Simulated assay, not measured.
Amino acid sequence: MKRFYYMIDYHVHTSLCDHAEGGMEAYIQKAVEIGLQDICFLDHLTMQPAADNLSMAPGEVPFYFQALQRLKQEYRGSINVKIGLEIDFNPDHVDFFQEITARYSFDVIGGSLHFLGGLNIASHSSPWKQGDLEPDYVYDLYLEHLKKMLDYNYFDVLCHLDLVKKFGWESSRSLDKEFNEILSIIKNKHMTVEINTSGYNHPAREIYPSFDIIKNCREQGISITLGSDAHKPENVGQHYDKAWPLLLKAGYRHLTTFTRRKRSQVAITNT
Rank of each mutant, 00 (worst) to 15 (best):
H44G: 09
V193H: 13
L116K: 04
V164A: 02
L116C: 02
R261E: 02
Q98C: 10
A31K: 02
I87Q: 03
P209N: 00
D95L: 14
I185V: 15
F258Y: 15
N153D: 15
Q220W: 08
E219P: 02
P135H: 13
G227S: 07
A26P: 00
G77A: 10
G131F: 07
M149P: 05
T256I: 04
T225Q: 02
L113S: 02
F167N: 09
H114R: 06
H114T: 07
S228T: 12
H93A: 06
K187P: 08
M56L: 10
Y252R: 03
R253F: 09
S78R: 15
D162T: 07
H124T: 09
S184E: 15
K262V: 14
A67L: 01
S78C: 08
L36M: 00
Q69L: 11
S223M: 13
G111W: 06
I28F: 11
L255T: 05
C159A: 14
T46D: 15
S228Q: 10
S125Q: 11
Y208N: 00
H124P: 00
N80E: 12
I207T: 13
K148N: 11
T269W: 09
G131D: 02
K242H: 14
G35F: 10
T257H: 02
E25F: 07
A50K: 15
L247A: 06
L158G: 00
M47G: 02
L85K: 01
N216K: 15
T269V: 15
K166N: 07
G251M: 03
Q69D: 06
I195F: 08
A31T: 02
I87C: 05
A67P: 01
N270G: 10
A51Y: 13
T197H: 09
A51C: 11
H239W: 15
K262C: 12
F63L: 11
P58Q: 04
T271H: 13
H93M: 06
Q73I: 07
A243D: 05
R103I: 01
Y137Q: 14
W244F: 15
L175M: 09
V157L: 06
H93D: 03
F155C: 03
Y240H: 04
R260K: 12
I224G: 10
F96I: 10
Y10T: 11
W244H: 06
D88W: 06
G22Q: 00
Y104G: 01
N180L: 09
I222C: 08
L175Y: 07
V32Y: 05
E60A: 05
I182L: 09
P209F: 04
Y208W: 01
P127F: 06
I79K: 15
M47E: 00
Y75A: 12
L141W: 10
I186N: 06
T269G: 09
H124Y: 12
Y208H: 03
H19Q: 01
Y5F: 13
T197Q: 09
Y104H: 09
C17E: 05
L45R: 06
G227K: 13
D88M: 05
S210I: 00
V61N: 01
N188I: 05
L42I: 13
I121Q: 05
G111D: 03
A102S: 14
F97L: 08
R263N: 07
